[in-house]
């Protein structure tokens, strides 16, 4: 089975917004659960608050969009969920793990096994080919995979994003859209339960952006939770869950078009209609 149903997602990516997990949002356990999470830089009068006492839950298999204007804290929240940043206060549970309490190396190990991250700027290692960039993610995940299987999984991941013929290309030899697809292949190759994509289409033209979004959106079919950060309201409208940020706080939170009460108090999805 391909990691991503590339053909179907490309041909009808947005035609099936009702992902399996979305039909009964109230019944699923959350994959991501943030309680009173804040992220602050500096101290005293120089203190800058990136995220201010955020509470939220994101269910397993959901496509969740975090939206907001520049400086609203959406990327910071995404980084906290992806485990590439640490809250200064509050608790953050992802797939049952209190990631705010993990050490730097434990967090790195956890990321390698449980999260795939897609950045606006791709952040591919420039000296490695497309295949090597993907294979590196397998190596770092700590999974015990033989060389041939690793290569097979790499090929499969790249094929699923339509880059089977460009496996040996260096990032410099790929277009922006292709680089982002390599980044997606790298993110999905370990079959993580959570994908966090920060402005994945921000550096791409519309066609390339659509392709990338379709690929990400298609992942939820396999039960992968996809959190994507965007300022594109049209894309956010396609999400199962929509978290709007303003000045570091969640200003609006809706799931399936229904507003979610803030703050959340339980570790299950509790939606309250205002």
């Amino acid at each position: 089975m391909a990691l991503i149903s590339h053909e179907s997602s490309v041909t009808s990516p947005l035609s099936a917004p009702q992902a399996p997990g979305f039909t009964k949002p109230h019944a699923v356990r959350p994959l991501v659960s943030a309680h009173d999470v804040s992220r602050q830089w500096g101290k005293g009068s120089n203190a800058q608050l990136g995220v201010d006492r955020v509470d939220l839950n994101i269910g397993s298999g959901e496509l969740a969009a975090i939206v907001g204007p520049s400086g609203s804290g959406k990327s910071t929240l995404g980084a906290l969920i992806a485990g590439i940043d640490r809250p200064t206060s509050g608790s953050l549970v992802v797939d049952g793990e209190r990631i705010d309490q993990l050490s730097t190396d434990q967090l790195a190990r956890w990321r390698g096994r449980n999260v795939g991250i897609v950045f606006q700027d791709f952040h591919l290692l420039p000296t490695l080919s497309a295949a090597e960039n993907v294979e590196l993610a397998i190596t770092l995940s700590g999974r015990s995979v033989g060389r041939s299987k690793r290569r097979a999984e790499t090929r499969e991941a790249l094929s699923s994003v339509g880059l089977a013929d460009k496996v040996r290309r260096l990032p410099n030899e790929l277009s922006g859209g292709e680089q982002q697809r390599v980044a997606i292949a790298r993110a999905v190759v370990n079959r993580p339960r959570l994908i966090v994509a920060d402005e994945p289409t921000g550096s791409l033209d519309q066609a390339a952006g659509s392709t990338v979004f379709e690929l990400l959106a298609g992942l939820r079919r396999d039960g992968t939770t996809v959190v994507f950060i965007t300022h594109d309201r049209a894309l956010a409208a396609e999400a199962d869950r929509r978290i709007e940020m303003l000045d570091g706080s969640v200003s609006r939170h809706s799931a399936g078009g229904v507003d979610v009460r803030i703050p959340l108090t339980a570790d299950t999805l509790v939606a309250g209609v205002q």
Binding site: D105, R111, I117, H123, L125, P126, A137, L140, A187
Partner: peptide, 16 residues
Amino acid sequence: RHEFAALQAIGGRRRH
């Protein structure tokens, strides 16, 4: 440092 941060983001530890 940016390259190393990218490496860490995908699971690379300090020893890597």
